[in-house]
């Protein structure tokens, strides 16, 4: 027991970050699962974080109420952003969401209520490891169960072929908006949890590099099954600590190793790390491919 307590004292914060990053990665997974490439989820986390933080510090709202409000605010922002930008495809959607992210960051940097560049300070530290992992488990359960629901099939159909999906009755606008909103909401929840993890949040913590990290978690972990982004987030968040244990300290080498992992995964595991676990049970990659074609 002492050992566990000791390890937690040393690595507890890494564990917390792994959970929050996993939740953020999962939020992007929901968006990606309908084929939408969004770089806005870091900004949605920012919206969730700031709304929750402002509620607790300025209005004295209870922690759980703030979490809920942060989630809803980010979801609402997602829906409002989604209405105009979801008619864009591929890289154009990515650019629009990226621009949105910058708008949010710069707004947080300049508004008085967000504390400007100094950030929002004096946040009560209420988030702990249990709450993070409880939220993550609930979100993962929701996303996993959603996969074979009507909505889940519609999302996958859109990702695979939008025109065919529409022709078989999938309402593209509605389904995409739901995916975008749900993804934004989950990101907002992660942001709200994060806001109450330390004493302050600053605009830079929800910037472009975070958005790209979320994408990396999904690519490395795999975005075809719900646990892919969790694996990716866990691995890449823990990586600096693992490397430190191996004697590699911060610096260009660490970023290089991040890049190398990304490269190796893209080359050898295009469906991500999750494919290592998924492969056996998944007919899509099973040896059935070797069966003779006839027709």
């Amino acid at each position: 027991m002492d050992l566990i307590t000791h390890l937690y004292a040393v690595y507890g914060s890494v564990l917390n970050f792994m959970g929050i990053n996993a939740l953020l990665a999962l939020s992007l997974y929901v968006t990606l699962s309908s084929g939408l490439l969004s770089l806005g989820n870091a900004a949605f986390a920012g919206i969730g974080g700031y709304v929750a933080g402002i509620l607790t510090t300025k209005l004295g709202a209870p922690y759980l109420v703030s979490l809920g409000a942060g989630t809803l605010a980010a979801g609402l922002a997602g829906m409002l952003l989604g209405l105009p930008v979801l008619r864009l495809r591929g890289v154009f959607l990515a650019m629009a969401t990226l621009a949105f992210g910058e708008v949010v960051r710069i707004a947080a940097l300049n508004l008085e209520i967000t504390g400007g560049a100094m950030g929002l300070i004096g946040l009560p530290v209420k988030t702990n490891t249990w709450i993070i992992y409880l939220a993550l488990a609930a979100a993962a359960y929701l996303v996993a169960r959603m996969a074979r629901s009507r909505l889940g099939w519609a999302l996958t159909s859109i990702r695979e072929d939008e025109t065919a999906a529409a022709a078989m009755g999938v309402n593209l606008t509605l389904t995409k908006t739901i995916a975008f909103t749900l993804g934004a909401g989950l990101a907002g929840l992660a942001g709200a949890l994060y806001a109450h993890l330390n004493f302050l949040i600053t605009p830079g913590e929800f910037g472009f590099s975070v958005a790209v990290n979320l994408l990396m978690y999904n690519i490395v972990g795999g975005y075809r099954v719900w646990y892919g982004p969790l694996l990716g987030a866990a691995l890449l968040t823990a990586l600096p600590e693992l490397l430190r244990a191996l004697g590699v300290t911060a610096g260009p080498l660490r970023l290089g190793i991040n890049g190398l992992i990304l490269l190796l995964v893209i080359l050898f595991l295009p469906k991500g790390l999750a494919d290592l676990f998924h492969r056996r049970g998944d007919p899509a990659t099973a040896p059935a491919q070797a069966a003779p074609a006839k027709g």
Binding site: R150, L151, G169
Partner: peptide, 12 residues
């Protein structure tokens, strides 16, 4: 199964 979108309710 995906093609059953209009007929299968599959509630969450």
């Amino acid at each position: 199964l995906a093609g059953q979108h209009l007929v299968a309710r599959r509630p969450l």
